[in-house]
Design a protein around this nucleic acid. Structure first.
Lengths: 315, 315
DNA sequence: CTGTTAGCGCGTTCAA
DNA sequence: TTGAACGCGCTAACAG
């Protein structure tokens, strides 16, 4: 708003030229210690901070990144975003948030907007169905979360590991009839991989395979548990804790206490409501941190797009 | 990144001067219909969009606003933010998100950063304990949510109305022993007002007043319900649905089915997990929309800071 | 090592 | 009604 001071002012106040101030500002070499210190002192004293827009105009980067979540109230995505924000802020990036509501059209529209705005980078949460040509332009400055795609940077959870850990734990506790409640295979990670890992474990240990893949809402969990509860079932693995919440509601209502629930994802909500559920932590917090720093590295050209997998830990 | 075209290019391509393009861009008067149409056609055709940073540098506004939530995973705040985002995007504002974690120090620090960045405005969620002199500088471009302060714009929920509605409903259903589980009074809105409204209703109808004000976490709800459950208690009003979730967990565990729960806040989670709970909708969605548009109006100088109250509706 | 100069893309005079 | 010139705050190229 009002007359903020500029490098010109700082220059005048410290008796040097504009460009020297600029050099100090950007930690460039070629400035004597004495001058640098003097200039820095003046900047401190006046609480000077350079105009973002002016820098952006020269440098082609306004230091803004976008985080596109599927839903603001996704428990798991929240945990990742929570650790992501501080990283961005520390590095001077402004993170703007966008909700995709699982709509590819909406994502494409937003990506278009982001491009027109010349945004620096994007973190895109678990998403499929976006046209390749749209995504392609973002290849150097995009990090996918919980999804991977050839040539793109991504941070994924160890779906197989998570399910294996869960199954092994249940198996060790003596369970031999472990049903599965999951997500359809068009969701490659949460859907296909987790289901497949469960199938594999069952095969290896010669267990019967009773499963359903209704989707990822609580309601779907609630409505479809019954399908996978056989008389002999003693445990149920859920692909997500949201599903587990739905399932657990059903079990409570039916007063079924003989079934051990287990799920991927240890959100605070489920830990509180149902501490008896066995969970593995897919590493949401770590995933957020990694995604943010990976994106920043890419933006600065310090790293090529990489595929990162976060190990799951029993919780 | 690469050579985006500028107004200069558009000017050349449409055979006019830069300033004419600028005028068209800003819908200024003083441009003939023919020229305007021609220029607009060229802009359309080349998908031109002006550089944000360049405009910002001239106009002192980069069209960025900040939304400071207490927690990313707050159920109620999520609902408000969800309706807020589209409003900002429609008006060309980039909403950046910040989590305060209920820490006044953190908010002050972030406000400082936002000021250095020359942000246009801030939506600040339910917060007290920030020094007045800090907040003062933001007075023209700040909207408080779920909190009010003299001289500041705010969007609040109708705490009294919500509780009254709830109580009346319970009373009509024949309940005469209605306990209360709430939040300490240092939280003026969710704490004091709701509690006071409950007290008032009880006085008017000569009901006994059994209550506890543990805080606003589920855990606190869970741990303190017992205190307010008398043998004669038939209903329990909770100040927030988070508290209600905690309380309800306790009731389930104790197999207590004789107590009707009621709470302020109809988040999808509680509607699904406990549809039997009587809830009022404080109007989260509407609050988000109003807050966003109020902020934009203020930024553009089209409105003075106002105090808005959203009516509660039975849900 | 440092100051001077020239733009970046846009809005805003001021003449024409 | 329009265009040319200037400057916003900053960085980069070039002098000194």
């Amino acid at each position: 708003m009002q007359n903020r001071l500029t490098i010109k002012d700082i220059a005048r106040l410290s008796g040097v030229g504009k460009s020297t101030v600029s050099r100090v500002l950007n930690n460039e070499s070629g400035v004597s210690e004495r001058t640098r210190e003097r200039v820095e002192a003046v900047m401190q004293q006046h609480g000077f901070s350079p105009s973002r827009s002016a820098r952006a105009m020269r440098g082609q980067s306004d230091k803004v990144v976008a985080i596109i979540v599927t839903r603001l109230d996704s428990l798991s995505e929240n945990l990742a975003v929570q650790t992501m924000l501080p990283v961005f802020y520390e590095q001077g990036y402004d993170p703007i948030m966008i909700e995709s509501q699982f709509s590819p059209a909406m994502v494409e529209e937003h990506l278009g907007m982001l491009q027109r705005r010349n945004i620096d980078g994007v973190v895109l949460f678990g998403f499929t169905g976006i046209r390749a040509e749209i995504l392609a332009r973002w290849q150097p400055s995009l990090v996918l979360l919980a999804r991977e795609a050839k040539g793109f940077a991504s941070v994924c959870y160890d779906d197989e590991g998570a399910i294996q850990t869960l199954m092994q734990r249940l198996y060790d506790r003596g369970h031999r009839h472990i049903s599965y409640l999951g997500v359809p295979h068009h969701d490659v990670t949460t859907g296909q991989r987790r289901h497949q890992a469960w199938l594999t474990f069952c095969k290896q240990h010669e267990l019967a395979t009773v499963s359903a893949l209704p989707g990822l809402t609580m309601k779907q969990g609630y409505e479809h548990v019954a399908q996978v509860l056989m008389p002999e079932t003693t445990a149920l693995v859920c692909a997500t804790d949201t599903l587990a919440l739905g399932a657990s509601k059903y079990l409570q209502e039916q007063r079924i206490e003989s079934v051990q629930l287990a799920s991927v994802g240890n959100t605070p909500l489920i830990k509180f409501l149902h501490p008896e559920i066995v969970t593995v932590d897919p590493g949401y917090a770590e995933a957020g941190r990694r995604a943010a720093s990976q994106l920043i590295e890419q933006i600065n050209g310090r790293s090529e797009p990489q595929q990162i997998v976060i190990p799951a830990t029993l919780s």
